[in-house]
Design a protein around this nucleic acid. Structure first.
Lengths: 122, 122
DNA sequence: CATATATTCAACTATATGGTTGAGCACATG
DNA sequence: CATGTGCTCAACCATATAGTTGAATATATG
């Protein structure tokens, strides 16, 4: 039997929340977000700093903007993007922590003597 | 010019972090995680509670397990899954908050009198 | 061993999405 | 208005992946 029965989140909500996660579930977008930790930046700058193609960066930023992970403002002929949510940094920290502890655990597992697996008959 | 130059995360790290996000970037998996908030549960129970197909649930749980979002333990003929990271709940709360505030902002935007757009000539 | 139960695996299809390329658009300047 | 700059958009292709179906595996029981 279940412990607490949390509210089971409507399908629409699940989809929207998933969308938020999915937006960060891509290395290029994550890299752009990471670059934006240093502050507001133009598309061109982000292209240079990331090494990604112009159209690609523009597309990813558009995506991140659509789901409100970044803000956009136009200044003259340039467009400036910035992080829209202060919590982004903490979020990424958390995930990095996870990756590091998982990796460490994996290493520990390799170092450990192989757990005696019950031999399976040939 | 940039503010701080955070460490730019290796491509491998970006991919691993992205993988963590991506695992939660899918409504069905999110639903399963949400069900697990109530405590450890068997695959069969999760199938009933989620309304998803057996194979589908098994696959998603396998995926979540591979990236260490859930733990797995076998008891007799059944398999029990549970959340592997206490921070999961906080994480989902954060995302739900985001969705809610974005939605609210959208409604506010609809309610507001149309911001006078500089008329573009026909 | 035969059978039942609980879960996983493999193969397949349909859809979504990342990246590229080339065209298009908005603003600035002479 | 012609040109240059900075960015976005649309079409396209290749790959990844959610979900299904049917077979396979593991554990318990008679």
């Amino acid at each position: 039997m279940a412990k607490k029965n949390h509210d089971p989140l409507s399908p629409a909500m699940l989809e929207q929340v998933a969308q938020q996660f999915r937006a960060l579930g891509e290395p290029s977008r994550l890299q752009l977000m990471n670059l934006l930790f240093d502050g507001e930046s133009t598309v061109g700058e982000l292209v240079e700093r990331s090494g990604l193609s112009l159209a690609n960066v523009s597309k990813h930023l558009g995506h991140l903007h659509k789901v409100h992970w970044v803000t956009r403002r136009k200044v003259g002929v340039k467009v400036l993007y910035a992080l829209a949510d202060e919590r982004t940094f903490g979020l990424c920290e958390l995930m990095c922590d996870r990756v590091r502890s998982v990796t460490k655990a994996a290493v520990a597992r390799i170092d450990a003597p192989a757990p005696k697996q019950p031999r399976r008959r040939g």
